[in-house]
Every structure is written in structure tokens, then in C-alpha cells.
Simulated assay, not measured.
Amino acid sequence: MVPDPTYGYTLALLSEVGAPPPPEDFAEFWTGRYERARRVDPAPVARPSRHGGSLHDVEFSSLDGVRIGGWLSLPVDGRVERGLVVGHGYGGRAAPDAVVPVERAAVLYFCARGMPARSRLPGIPDTARLHVRHGIAARETYVHGGCAADLWCAVSALCRLVPEAAARVDYLGGSFGGGIGALAVPWDERISSACLVVPSFGNHPLRLTLPCTGSGESVREYARDHPEVREVLRYFDAATAATFLRVPTHVGMALADPAVPPPGQFAVYNALAGPRERFLLTAGHTEYAGMGEEDRALRAAQRDFLNLSF
């Protein structure tokens, strides 16, 4: 366990954490990946889900020829006015969320490549500790680049399956999904706004100095033995990417978190280049008194944010 999940940071100190400067070709690297992903035919397939109702099992193609799985939720009355793509934490996703965060929306819950339960793939570990290091030796092979492409291809699949959803597409993701969202959203002009919760992968140089119980510890250990990986991580820093993120973004950040150190979370929020709104959480990745009430308040804030006209 982490002795102090605040890592000694007060709110004032957290508000001052910045983002590492981008490599000179950072934008070129990401726009190039995005353009490749947009050329992928998602070939989506939707089938009625065993969960019943207006839920469908979905799969679609992503970059590198992989098939990604998930679920599509439709309004009970079939009236769709917008779309929402939802990510997940570093444990994957076993089922769609019980509560849809916006009304009149077609919602696509996707599982990133290698992740349970719908996107396990040969050759990609399905546990956080190993997944986070998969292909990390080079920026072209690092799995997080593929996961960002999965998000972009999820947008393509959603708009193909439900054309009405293209009127406005938003993104929501927490922890792993929050960090991947920060990496992916800046480059996709189809995404109108984003909600990120306790986003991971912010300010890697700082994260590598902070022991934690999450996937960052695996990366920290790897970097200790392979210092050259720091150059690769510069291209996958969620805080650096946030300096290019100009759409309205809502961020839920924890003041204490043993798995995703708060300084990294705040680094993402502090670096955002566009309109932003924050929601402070007592803690992340751990249970605490008042957690249920705080979670309901966060969901209400996200709902209000997503219902704004941007």
C-alpha cells in the first residue's frame, strides 16, 4: 500500500502541476495515427444482447486489423439525437453501465484492445500490469497508441451503426479510459466534448518518481531498468496531449489516490487548452465514507455538462 495517497500534495500544490513539453513531432505523430484510423472500415456488427431491452452486443474493426467488442445502448423509444462513446478503467469492462449518462443518445461502450471481456486478443496481455508495458519499447508499437485508435474507430462504428448519433458525439472515460481519452480526443474533430475521471498517464516524468498501486508502478519499474523508455513515454503523456485538447472537457480529480497519483490527474486538467470544468473527489480507487453520495454528485455534474450546448 501507498503510505500517503495524497503524496504530500495540497490542493494548492496540485493546481500548480504542469505538463511536460511535447516532442517536436508530437502532433504529427498523433495526427498521422488518427488519419490511419479514419481510413479503417469499422465493419460494425450489432446483435441483440442477452441483457435484453435496447442493448446490443457490438464488434467492429480497428487499426492493425483487430476486432474490438462492446455494447450499444439505444433509447427505449428508439429516438436518437446524439452519440456517446464510453471507455473503461484498467480492469476492462464486464458489462455496460446501468445508468446512461445522457438522454436520447446512442451509447457505445467499447473494450480497448487486449482488455476483458470483449476485446481479448492473442499476444496482448489482459492484465493491467502487463498490458501497460505491451510494445512499450517503441512509440510505433506501444499498445496505448492502438487503444487510442480503438476509441477513434469506436466513433466510426457508432456513426455507421446509428447515423443520427453523428449529430453530436461526446466521450466519457475514467482512469485508463480517462488517460486514453486525453490522448485521443484532441485529434478527432467529430468529438464535441469529453468527461474524464481520475485520468491516468499524466506527466510521466513525475509519475515515474511516485510509487503507486496501479499500472503506473509497472511502468515505473520498467523505466528503472530501461531508462530509454522515457523517450517513448513522451508521446503517450496525457497531460502533454491535453495541451492540444480544445473541446470543452469536464474532469473529476481525486485529492487522494493510491493507484493514480493525484499530481498526474491534475496535470491533465491544468494543461487543458479549451474550456474546462473540474469536480473534486475525496479519493479515487479506494472506498471511503460518503463515496456513494459523491459518485452520484459526479454523475449529475457530468450529465449537466454533457447537456450543455457547445
Rank of each mutant, 00 (worst) to 15 (best):
D257P: 05
G69V: 10
R234S: 15
T127E: 14
P21G: 10
L151Q: 02
L72P: 11
G202R: 08
P3A: 13
C111R: 04
G70V: 02
E294D: 12
L121D: 13
C195T: 02
E221V: 06
S215Q: 15
L206S: 12
S200T: 14
R47H: 12
A283T: 09
E217N: 14
A297L: 14
S192P: 07
R33Q: 11
Y288Q: 03
L210G: 15
E35F: 08
S215L: 12
D237G: 03
V45Y: 01
D77A: 07
R93Y: 01
R120K: 12
V100K: 02
R133Y: 04
L14V: 05
R303D: 13
R303I: 10
G89T: 00
R207D: 12
E103A: 10
N307L: 10
A157H: 02
V86G: 00
F305D: 10
A137P: 00
D257N: 09
V268P: 01
E164Q: 14
R220S: 05
Y7A: 10
G52D: 06
C147F: 03
A157F: 01
P258H: 06
G18H: 10
T10M: 02
F110V: 06
D64N: 15
G18C: 10
F29C: 00
S15P: 05
A256S: 14
D150N: 08
P258D: 06
P163A: 03
T286E: 15
P116L: 11
W152Q: 02
Y235S: 07
M291R: 15
P116H: 10
N270L: 06
T6A: 08
V198K: 06
F266P: 05
R118P: 08
C147L: 10
C111K: 07
E221S: 07
A105K: 07
D295C: 09
A254F: 12
A19T: 06
M253R: 15
R120M: 11
E28K: 04
V66N: 09
E81L: 05
A301V: 08
R246D: 07
A128T: 10
R207Q: 15
G252C: 13
E81R: 05
G290W: 08
T282C: 13
A256F: 07
Y34C: 00
R118W: 09
G264Q: 04
R303L: 08
F110Y: 15
E294F: 14
V232W: 11
A105R: 04
R120T: 09
E231H: 11
S73P: 04
V143I: 15
P42W: 05
A271S: 05
V85F: 01
G284D: 06
V66F: 15
R299H: 14
A297P: 03
S156M: 02
A148F: 01
D295T: 15
L233S: 07
G173H: 03
E81K: 04
P261M: 11
S156R: 03
A117L: 14
P42Y: 06
V86H: 01
V185A: 12
G69F: 07
P22S: 14
N307A: 13
F244P: 02
A184R: 05
W187Q: 00
E16Q: 15
V132W: 02
R38A: 08
Q302H: 12
G65C: 14
V85Q: 00
V229C: 05
S61I: 04
R120V: 14
A223P: 08
T10P: 01
T127Q: 11
D126H: 13
S62A: 09
Q265D: 02
A242S: 14
T243N: 07
